[in-house]
Simulated scan of single mutants.
Amino acid sequence: MIKRKHNKNKIGKPPGSIIYTGKKHDTSLKMQLLEYNETEYKTREIKGIEEINLDSKYIKWLNISGLADTEYIKYIGDYFKINTMILEDIVHIGQRPKIEVFKDYTFVVFNMILHDQEKKNINHEQLSFILFSNILITFQEFDLNTFTPVKERIQYDIGGIRKKSESYLLYTIMDTIVDQYYLLLDEIEEKIEALEADIMENMNSESLKEIYGLRKELLLCKTSIWPLKDIINYMMRDEELFTQNIKEYFKDVNDHIVQIMDFIVIYREVLTGLLDTQLSNSSNRMNQIMTTLTVFSAIFIPLTFFAGVYGMNFENMPELAYKSGYLIFWIISGIIGIGLYGMFRFKKWI
């Protein structure tokens, strides 16, 4: 089960209360500003948003990582005249992906899921975007190098990105995030294949935990990716939000989302089949154990009968006076035991 913790400090607070609900309280706020046009590119860390020249002809991208400093987040909101409800969503980690359109800007929430190779689990990061006409602002809880491919594209002008607008930059980042899901699904697919081989060959009881773990990961992927389809559809339908050229790019992102959802459905079905196979293997193994115990019990039933009969203390039991009676008892018992065992083997009960 996926645990969802809420911050107790938010209970009873009025709407627009800027309270950070994440776990990275020790992460300091950092701001990186990228400015570029067709011929120039420059990037630098800034100490204050006053250093940004909003009137310059550069395309501007401000990436903010570290959301624990809510006072400065509020200051950024006041500087850019961002609604306090939006600021609340930015620092309230765990938001459902969504889009909200205002007069002067557009607010988008995405969820990024990355696989942690060391801890063998997945990391969840909320990404928030605010698109103005002259600048794109992104908010990260912590820096996972999520935007590195986009920064490299801008630096080396791959695909002519410097000739495009801030809207195209938003598309590029969203497309990069969606592409990261393919990498996560590839890793999940490898786990499923290894798990399938383990179940078929070894009938390992530990596989049950792995199956439930993978189903949990896929459920988290589904809840993070499925709302993105609504966001992209809204962007493509809105006539004023983006130009037709940009909408064509978002159609490609939408196709990727649909394909990823298809993969998730397939993988969940495969895991359901593996779960049934694992439970069936466990049941068959238990049946084999019970069959073995039953066979040996059946072999010892007649032997127990003979032992009980000749264990009675009657005075007139002629067999007890035989000189070879003890040996005869063991010979008969051996014949009965071996005969029953052979019959069970012949019938393939054991």
Rank of each mutant, 00 (worst) to 15 (best):
M1Y: 09
K81V: 15
K5S: 11
V265D: 15
I76Q: 06
T148F: 14
F107Q: 00
M286E: 02
T84Q: 15
V265W: 13
D238N: 13
E166Y: 14
Y168N: 00
Y181F: 09
Y234L: 13
S56R: 12
I161N: 07
W226F: 14
E217S: 03
T294W: 14
D104G: 01
G12W: 06
L184Q: 05
W226I: 02
G16Y: 11
G66E: 09
E201T: 08
K347D: 08
I49H: 13
M343W: 13
R44Y: 07
Y234A: 12
P15K: 05
S283T: 10
L131D: 05
Y249I: 01
S165C: 08
N9L: 11
I336S: 05
F147S: 07
K103Q: 13
V258N: 09
F110G: 10
L293P: 04
F80S: 03
P318E: 05
Y156K: 04
Y267F: 13
N281W: 01
N53P: 02
L34T: 14
T176H: 14
I192C: 02
K251W: 08
T27P: 00
L275A: 04
V101S: 04
K8D: 15
D26V: 10
Q278G: 00
V295R: 14
G16E: 10
I90P: 00
Q155M: 10
M203K: 15
T21M: 05
Q32T: 10
G94Q: 07
I137P: 00
I135H: 06
T27F: 15
N134P: 01
T106V: 12
F110H: 03
A194K: 11
I158A: 07
Q259K: 01
G12E: 04
Q259F: 02
Y72L: 07
L220G: 06
Q244C: 08
G12Y: 06
S280H: 01
T272R: 11
I331A: 05
V295T: 12
D179G: 02
M31S: 03
G342N: 12
R162Y: 04
G66A: 05
Y72G: 03
F139M: 06
D143R: 01
T304A: 10
R215W: 13
K229W: 09
L303K: 04
R268M: 11
T70K: 06
E152T: 13
I257F: 01
R268G: 11
S224I: 06
I211T: 05
Y249M: 00
M112C: 07
K247C: 00
D26S: 08
R345Q: 15
